[in-house]
Design a protein around this nucleic acid. Structure first.
Lengths: 133, 133
DNA sequence: AAACCATGTTAGAAAATCTAACATATGATT
DNA sequence: AATCATATGTTAGATTTTCTAACATGGTTT
């Protein structure tokens, strides 16, 4: 349960890299943080460090902005998204409760093979699964 | 053939991030560059920017150093590695030449399904496929 | 011991990022 | 039309991060 791994939530990128990757300006990125659409980590020296998840989120934000949605709207959409997510999860829990051990094993095996863990979004795209080779 | 993608060769990480990820000091990283074991990109402002490939390589270097191999030895090993790689590739080429179109299609299909593109190393591990979730 | 190798440490300069403030274009509200 | 709010641009000054270059040092090799 230890060892060096890169997780989607690991803060790895400085704002300059994120600017390139998202084609957003530093001003925009900071503004979205100000409105709590993202919460990048900070170094000891107070520089923002972004994770892959942060970048995903920024791409989603960009998309929604392009669709004319404002800060408040985007915040709401994100809220709804987690709710949906939670709903799905408790639903899954419930189903699992009803399964026999044998059935459970099959289900888990299947779950591991497919679905890349949670990241299936309720909204549009914006995740980076399409990126890595 | 365009669009924003993250490639293993894209320079994304500043040296600070690489230090964390590899547990090498800045001094070490720069020293290895000096000896041409890596060639990180530079920003307009001359700051080093590392790709996933660079990080892989640094992890390999670290490993080889731990095994007591020196700069010259590592450089040689890397040289041999590309030669091996090239050999495999021309071999593959040759084989493909001899195939019918039908056979070729099958082979390509297979190649796409398995083997994550080139990164199977001749040496030990050191690639980051194990990292991402 | 002398030389060499890999790394540590330091100093001074330059680049990247930070916050805060003010500026401005666009669209909505009165 | 005048005003307001929103999202973003721009600037200034401070701080952090990274850079190169030089010198220091503990092990190895000769």
């Amino acid at each position: 349960m230890s060892g060096k791994e890169i997780r989607r939530s690991m803060p790895l990128f400085p704002i300059g890299t994120v600017m390139q990757l998202t084609e957003l300006t530093a001003r925009q990125i900071r503004y979205y943080e100000e409105h709590q659409l993202i919460s990048p980590a900070r170094t000891d020296g107070n520089r923002r460090m972004f994770s892959l998840n942060d970048i995903d989120r920024l791409l989603e934000i960009k998309d929604l902005i392009d669709q004319g949605i404002n800060m408040a709207g985007i915040k709401q959409l994100f809220l709804i998204k987690v709710q949906q997510q939670n709903k799905v999860e408790t639903q899954t829990e419930k189903v699992k409760q009803e399964l026999t051990d044998e059935q459970l094993r099959k289900l888990l095996r299947n779950e591991l093979m497919h679905s890349g863990r949670n990241n299936r979004s309720t909204l549009r795209q914006g995740d980076m699964s399409r990126f890595f080779h």
